[in-house]
C-alpha cells in the first residue's frame, strides 16, 4: 500500500481556559492522500481551526502524532519542523498583513527562503484577481482583499499542502467563486488541500472527502454525497440555511 501523505493518529489537544483544562481535540484519526481536497466541517467551536493549526505544525499536540510524508512530527526537532513547514502553507481564518506593501507581504515566504521572484509574485496576484496591487499599502486593503492577498501569499510558495481556514468567508459571491476555481486547479496540480468551511455548496463542489468534527471528535468521514446523505449528521448539526 502506498504511504499516506498525511497520517494523523489519536491526536489530542488540551488547552487552558481560565482555571480549567478543556479537551479541544479528543483523539482524531485521519489519513489524507496526496492531491486530495479534504473539507473540514462542523459547528463553530468544534475544533476545525485547532486541527488545522496542529497539521500546520504551529502548535504541538497534547497526545497522538502526525506523520507528514513519512516523517513523524512527534518529538521532531526545530529543524525538521521548519523543513516540513516549508512544504506547506496556511491561510488563517482572519488573516493579518505584515506592515508594508502588498508586494512585501506576498513575497514574505520567498524572502525567508532566500529567494525573491517578482514574476511569481505577479502571477500569484493575478491568480487571486488582484493584479497591479503590488505597491498598495497592505494596511489599507479591505477585508476581502486581505483574504485574497493572504491566499496569494501562500500560493506563491507552491506548497505541497495548503491549509485553508474558511477561505471564502469574507468574500462576495463572485470572488468566492474565483477562489473556488483556484482550489479546483490546485487539485489538478496534485496539491493537497485541507480546508475548514461552513459552506456546504463549496464542500460538494470541491471536496473529495468531507470530515465532520463535533466537539473535538471526528464523527463522520466520507465522500460529500455520503456525508450529506446521512440523516444523523444532518440532524445533529448541519442542515440549516445552507440548503442541504
Amino acid at each position: 500500500m502506498r504511504m499516506a501523505f498525511l497520517e494523523i493518529t489519536d491526536l489530542r489537544k488540551t488547552a487552558r481556559q481560565g482555571q480549567s483544562l478543556v479537551d479541544i481535540l479528543k483523539g482524531i484519526n485521519l489519513t489524507v492522500q496526496r492531491g486530495e481536497v479534504l473539507a473540514l466541517i462542523g459547528p463553530t467551536g468544534s475544533g476545525k481551526t485547532t486541527l488545522l493549526r496542529q497539521i500546520g505544525l504551529l502548535d504541538g499536540p497534547t497526545g497522538g502524532r502526525i506523520i507528514f510524508d513519512g516523517v513523524s512530527m512527534a518529538g521532531a526537532g526545530e529543524r525538521a519542523l521548519l523543513q516540513a513547514r516549508r512544504r506547506m502553507a496556511m491561510v488563517f481564518q482572519k488573516p493579518v498583513m505584515f506592515r508594508g506593501s502588498v508586494q512585501g507581504n506576498v513575497s514574505f515566504g520567498l524572502k525567508v527562503r532566500g529567494r525573491n521572484d517578482g514574476e511569481r509574485v505577479r502571477s500569484a496576484l493575478h491568480a487571486v484577481g488582484l493584479s497591479g496591487y503590488e505597491e498598495r499599502d497592505a494596511a489599507t486593503l479591505s477585508g476581502g482583499e486581505m483574504q485574497r492577498i493572504a491566499l496569494a501569499r501562500a500560493l506563491v510558495l507552491q506548497p505541497e499542502l495548503l491549509l485553508l481556514d474558511e477561505p471564502t468567508a469574507n468574500l462576495d459571491p463572485k470572488s468566492a467563486k474565483s477562489i473556488d476555481g483556484i482550489i479546483q486547479s490546485l487539485a489538478s496540480e496534485n496539491i493537497t488541500v485541507i480546508m475548514a468551511t461552513h459552506n456546504m455548496q463549496q464542500c460538494r463542489k470541491l471536496a473529495d472527502r468531507v470530515a465532520v468534527l463535533l466537539g473535538g471528535r471526528l464523527v463522520k468521514l466520507g465522500r460529500p454525497d455520503e456525508v450529506f446523505g446521512d440523516r444523523e449528521v444532518c440532524d445533529q448539526m448541519l442542515c440549516s440555511s445552507d440548503g442541504i
Binding site: L58, R85, A89, F92, G109, R113
Partner: peptide, 24 residues
C-alpha cells in the same frame, strides 16, 4: 500573536520571526 503564526506558517525561522515582530 497572529503575526508570529503567520510568519511561522510561511516558513520563517525562529530568528526571522523575531526580526519580523521587531519590524512590526
Amino acid at each position: 500573536p497572529q503575526i508570529k503564526d503567520t510568519a511561522r506558517s510561511l516558513g520563517a525561522t525562529e530568528i526571522q520571526i523575531i526580526v519580523t515582530v521587531i519590524n512590526e
